[in-house]
């Protein structure tokens, strides 16, 4: 029996003005994402991948269409209201890691708990560190880590809040092939084990093919094929 979508968007638009020109970063996207599902978004640069992820994750507000997150209509909400919806529901991983350089690995991981006013439970932190394979690096600083390890810290920071949806925007863009493969493996393990939904944007078709579904964006619109190519799975 199909579960209720965690996120559903219909006719999603994100238009903005650049000088006299109107840029249609998203132009009528329909999409649903359910728990335990991994979705890869591919497409050339400027196709709207990041914008789609930002809109679906409540980081950016759509300028048209309907968007429901966790059963709540969010189109038309203010940034402050979107923050409330977003908090604890999403975990984010970005291409450039964006770790706080003066915090240790463990401190970077527990940082979101401070803002969510949740207590730091030691064994939960240890579980996350183990899940991302950084138990032995808990007290190291980001400058002492490799790119792959830094991205693992970012994954740990996303996981500590026990999110329903993991949003990863080009998470392997700064990593070598082997490390990138390991990071995507980690994502998929978490999807299977924790029942998260994964929203992954990437240029790498091989990595994307490991997800349950792939959508391809072009000029802000989804273009066929919308189903995973079986030959690559």
């Amino acid at each position: 029996m199909p579960t209720t979508p965690l996120i559903s968007g219909y006719g999603l638009q994100r238009h903005y003005r650049r000088g006299i020109e109107t840029v249609r970063a998203l132009d009528g996207v329909d999409l649903e994402i359910r728990a335990g599902e991994s979705l890869a978004v591919i497409g050339p640069s400027g196709s709207g991948k990041t914008t789609l992820l930002n809109v679906l994750a409540g980081l950016d507000a759509p300028t048209g269409g309907q968007l429901t997150i966790g059963g709540q209509r969010v189109d038309g909400l203010s940034e402050q209201q979107l923050t409330t919806v977003r908090r604890g529901f999403f975990g984010f991983v970005f291409q450039n890691f964006h770790l706080i350089p003066t915090l240790t690995v463990a401190e970077n991981i527990v940082l979101p708990l401070l803002f969510l006013r949740r207590p730091v439970v030691r064994h939960e932190v240890e579980q996350v560190l183990e899940a991302v394979g950084l138990s032995h690096r808990a007290h190291h600083y980001p400058r002492e880590l490799s790119g792959g390890q830094m991205q693992r810290v970012a994954v740990g920071r996303a996981l500590i809040v026990r999110p329903r949806v993991l949003v990863a925007d080009e998470p392997t863009g700064n990593l070598d092939t082997v490390t990138a493969d390991a990071i995507v493996s980690l994502f998929l393990t978490l999807v299977n084990r924790e029942g998260l939904a994964l929203l992954l944007s990437t240029h790498n078709l091989e990595l994307a093919s490991r997800c349950d579904r792939i959508i391809r964006l072009k000029d802000g619109q989804i273009v066929p094929p919308v189903s995973p190519p079986q030959s690559l799975r």
């Binding site: 984010f92 940082l111 969510l116």
Partner: peptide, 9 residues
């Protein structure tokens, strides 16, 4: 990033 991971204004 802090706002993305949950920080309020």
């Amino acid at each position: 990033i802090l706002k993305a991971i949950g920080a309020e204004r």
